[in-house]
Amino acid sequence: MRSDGSLTALMLFLPPAVLLFSLFVIWPIFTAVDLSFYKWNGYGDVTNFVGFDNYGILLKNSIFHQSLFNSFKLLLASIFLQIPLALVLALLLYRKTSANTAFRLIFFAPYILAEIATGLIWSFIFDGDYGVSAMVADKLGSEPFYILADKQWAFWTIITVVVWKYFGYHMMIFIAALQAVPTDLIEAAEIDGASPLKTIWYVKLPMILHAIKLSVLFAITGALQVFDIIIPLTNGGPSNSTHSIVSFLYTFGLARMNVGFGAAVGVVLFILCVGTAFSYKRLAIDKGGQL
């Protein structure tokens, strides 16, 4: 035993977090794994063991394929639309002026908004009868368009809303990182006659690479978990074409009380998340230092 009290700290400080986490996160995951081998409608005892049947049905389900693809599209949009946008804004706003602070507040506001409220507000905006869509169509004198009812376009609205809601969050991470870049470095580059773009490319971006990597990790896990926004916005429609993995789980597992089936979806999602995140972490983060 060391005399600096490290053992005491260990015994005192770790258990609350680990215990809570195990009881309310890990334990339900294991229960979900167990449930995924049963057919169960949520009522009564869990007795109908079906082996891997739920997984078999899931892998054949075309709506599930679509929702996997949708989640993948969200992931790409998060990385290639949202993060660049957040980065540009962060570069424009990282200096401490009161105008910048005001802009920051505005851009961060959607993140504070509840997902469920966000979905409600935007479903109102995309409304082809009473919303912006209707107004724009009216101004142009064209037929109104119903973007949320269109299989081709409905998912783009979800991508738009997700980007709208979360870009401010990533922007904050980047601003924080930029403020930590030593100013003498930037000034040195400028004195050497580097153009603003070059300063960004050769000095600022490399200095905040860690923040970008972390942000991408958050974007990946976040994109795979999109749910509350979809339900009020499209409810997965039209023709079940706009589900994410989680809204698929909610609709086909929870709302229809196929609890075993839903648990199987959860397990697949979990494996996907852990797989993607850990391989990303190994590839991008561990090589360049710690998280």
Binding site: V25, P28, I29, F227, F270
Partner: peptide
């Protein structure tokens, strides 16, 4: 082990969580 928690939205295991 703790990092696993970031990969896991409520909806995934809401039923087991409820019983817990």
């Amino acid at each position: 082990y703790m990092l696993l928690g970031m990969m896991f939205p409520f909806a995934t295991a809401i039923v087991p969580l409820f019983f817990q």
